[in-house]
């Protein structure tokens, strides 16, 4: 179990607090899933609907490509006029003076199906 935890942390960015490795309270826990609508006019942030909150939490904990694509596809299903949806998981770390150091862990891009298809 511990071996699986460390392997998943290393290969797949599993949150160090989770997965049975007893890493809780060992590192800052500041991850966030962001979604973007991409259209001819540019990009704009998308608010996550309530029904995707649980999936978003799981994607923040273990940001696998499939999880992110599933969330992007769910968002893309109801976005008339958009070309694509991008979903990203970000992690913020903090420097010695608690300065913010956000970085992107993973992203997935899903095209929006044309209207009527």
């Amino acid at each position: 179990m511990a071996a699986m935890h460390f392997a998943l942390v290393r290969c797949c960015q599993l949150h160090p607090w989770l997965g049975g490795g007893f890493g809780m309270f060992s590192t800052v826990d500041e991850r966030r899933l962001l979604a973007w609508r991409i259209g001819p006019e540019g990009e704009e942030p998308l608010a996550l609907p309530y029904e995707l909150e649980d999936a978003a939490e799981r994607a923040e904990a273990l940001p696998g490509e499939r999880r992110l694509r599933a969330i992007a596809a769910a968002l893309a299903a109801d976005l008339p006029g958009a070309q694509a949806v991008r979903v990203e998981v970000w992690e913020t770390r903090f420097g010695p003076e608690m300065e913010r150091e956000p970085h992107r862990l993973r992203a997935a891009l899903v095209g929006v199906p044309p209207a009527g298809s």
Binding site: F22, G23, T27, V28, F94, M98
Partner: peptide, 26 residues
């Protein structure tokens, strides 16, 4: 013993634990 050994190692290995960052955040 194993649970506490893992918890200890995780804290020692973490980049932001022993320098106080974790608790300043928490």
């Amino acid at each position: 013993g194993l649970a506490f050994a893992l918890a200890t190692l995780q804290k020692v290995w973490a980049p932001d634990y022993l320098d106080g960052t974790f608790f300043r955040w928490a």
